[in-house]
């Protein structure tokens, strides 16, 4: 992936994740972590009217190669060591695949034990209004529990297990 495509993907992610919800305020605020931060690109905070109520991490992968024909998966690659690092983070963590051709993004949970690299992201969970709201709710639920433990996401990909 070239630096340009990566930079465009990060900008597209920022646009998608900070879209105003139902014409009102955004649900999220995202902060770049910088190149020296291992594995993750963004820390994303959940916004509420009076502040912040939780956070999660995101690794953004961008492609101009589109989707697989058979099962419509976005062709992005996440290396094995990155997958392992993401899975080990004790907080909600996601991979967002960006299709740089049409400007769409697709989210999938990166929590859980995985041993191999990832070669694609499913197209099941576009980063749209509905899934932004589901994302906000599941991360808030995680941080609302008194003793947050193992994280379980609705944005799971059986092919990653």
């Amino acid at each position: 992936m070239s630096d340009l495509i990566g930079a465009r993907g990060e900008s597209r992610f920022l646009v998608l994740i900070t879209e105003p919800h139902d014409g009102e305020r955004p649900l999220f605020r995202a902060q770049r972590l910088g190149e020296k931060w291992p594995a993750t690109d963004f820390l994303v905070e959940l916004l509420v009217s009076d502040g912040v109520t939780g956070f999660f991490f995101v690794q953004v992968k961008t492609t101009r190669q589109g989707f697989t024909e058979r099962d419509r998966r976005l062709k992005v690659t996440v290396a094995q060591h990155t997958v392992a690092r993401l899975a080990s983070i004790p907080a909600p963590t996601y991979v967002v695949g960006i299709d740089d051709i049409d400007g769409t993004g697709y989210i999938v949970s990166a929590n859980g034990e995985r041993l191999t690299n990832v070669a694609s992201v499913p197209g099941h969970f576009p980063l749209n209004r509905q899934n932004r709201e589901r994302l906000w709710r599941e991360v808030r639920e995680y941080w609302s529990s008194r003793l947050p433990g193992a994280f379980t996401s609705v944005f799971t990909d059986p092919a990653w297990g």
């Binding site: 930079a7 465009r8 900008s11 597209r12 920022l14 646009v15 900070t18 605020r29 995202a30 400007g103």
Partner: peptide, 10 residues
């Protein structure tokens, strides 16, 4: 600011 810069890059 965040969205302006992102749109500018794109």
């Amino acid at each position: 600011g965040v969205r302006a810069e992102a749109h500018a890059v794109l």
